[in-house]
C-alpha cells in the first residue's frame, strides 16, 4: 500500500470532554475508492470521530490529513468544499423546504449566486432537472413537492443522501445511514451506497452488521474511544477483543446510538 492511496489519515486523534476521553489516539487510514466501516458499541466515540474529521469539533490532540493536506485546523464549511461531505446520525434535512429544494440547496452553491438577494429564485430552476435525477436515484421522484418534515423517516434519510450526493463529493462520511429504517429501506440504501461508492470513497458508521459485511472493504472497530481491531469482516469478527467489546452491550443488529 503506497501512501498516495490513502485519502484520509489521522494520527493520535484525541478528544476529551472535561476530562472524559471520548476518542483516544486514533490512527485511521482510509484508502481511496474503498468503503470503510467504523463500528463499535454505543458510546464508543464513532460520532465524535466524525465530528472531529469534519471539524464540527476541535481535537484535543492529533492530526488529520485529507488528500495529503493537513486539515486539523480547517473550518467545517471548507472541509465540505474540499469534497469531504458528511451525513448526520439524526436525519438532517431542511424541514420546511420541499424535497426538491432540499437537494437544490446543495446544487446551488456551485452557481455562486447564493449571496444575491436581489435575484429571483426562479434563476435556480435551471437546477431542477439535476435535482429530480438525484431524487429519482433514491426513489423519491414522487415526493418532490412534499415538505421534508412531512416525509416518513426512511424517506428523510434517503433525501439526506440525495442532498449529500448533489455535492458530488470525493469522499462521503455516513453516520448510521440505515438507522431506524425498515427492512426494505435498508436494502435500498445499501444498494445506493454500493452504487455511489463506485467512484468515491465512503467512510461509514453502521450498526447493521449485515450491511457492514455486505458493503465494506475494510472495518475499523472502536471501543471506549480506541481502535481495538482492524481488517476485513471475517478478520474482525473472529477477533476475541471485538467479541468481548460487543458482549453486554445492546444487540448490535438493532443497536442505535
Amino acid at each position: 500500500m503506497v501512501d498516495s492511496e490513502i485519502i484520509l489519515q489521522t494520527d493520535g486523534l484525541t478528544k476529551e470532554f472535561k476530562g472524559f476521553v471520548a476518542v483516544k489516539e486514533v490512527a485511521l487510514k482510509v484508502r481511496r475508492g474503498t468503503i470503510h466501516a467504523l463500528i463499535g458499541p454505543n458510546g464508543a466515540g464513532k460520532t465524535t470521530c466524525f465530528n472531529l474529521l469534519t471539524k464540527f469539533l476541535p481535537p484535543t490532540a492529533g492530526h488529520i490529513h485529507y488528500k495529503g493536506a493537513e486539515i486539523t485546523r480547517a473550518a467545517p464549511a471548507d472541509i465540505a468544499r474540499m469534497g469531504l461531505v458528511r451525513s448526520f446520525q439524526i436525519s438532517a434535512v431542511f424541514g420546511h423546504l420541499n424535497a426538491l429544494e432540499n437537494v437544490r440547496v446543495a446544487l446551488q452553491r456551485r452557481l455562486a449566486t447564493s449571496f444575491q438577494f436581489w435575484k429571483s429564485e426562479r434563476t435556480l430552476d435551471q437546477l431542477n432537472g439535476r435535482a429530480e435525477e438525484l431524487l429519482a436515484a433514491v426513489g423519491l421522484q414522487d415526493f418532490r413537492d412534499y415538505l421534508a418534515i412531512e416525509l416518513p423517516y426512511g424517506r428523510k434519510r434517503a433525501l439526506e443522501i440525495a442532498t449529500t450526493l448533489a455535492l458530488d463529493p470525493e469522499m462521503l462520511l455516513l453516520d448510521e445511514p440505515t438507522a431506524g429504517m425498515g427492512h426494505e429501506d435498508v436494502g435500498r440504501i445499501a444498494q445506493l451506497i454500493k452504487k455511489v461508492a463506485k467512484d468515491r470513497t465512503v467512510l461509514m458508521v453502521e450498526h447493521n452488521l449485515s450491511v457492514v459485511a455486505d458493503l465494506s472493504d475494510r472495518i475499523t472497530v472502536l471501543a471506549r474511544g480506541e481502535i481495538i481491531a482492524e481488517g476485513s469482516y471475517a478478520e474482525v469478527s473472529r477477533d476475541p477483543q471485538v467479541r468481548q467489546a460487543y458482549m453486554g452491550s445492546t444487540d448490535v443488529e438493532a443497536g442505535h446510538g
Partner: peptide, 11 residues
C-alpha cells in the same frame, strides 16, 4: 432549518 447541515454542505 438546520444550521449544521448547511455547514456540512459547504456554506
Amino acid at each position: 432549518e438546520n444550521e449544521p447541515r448547511a455547514i456540512s454542505l459547504g456554506y
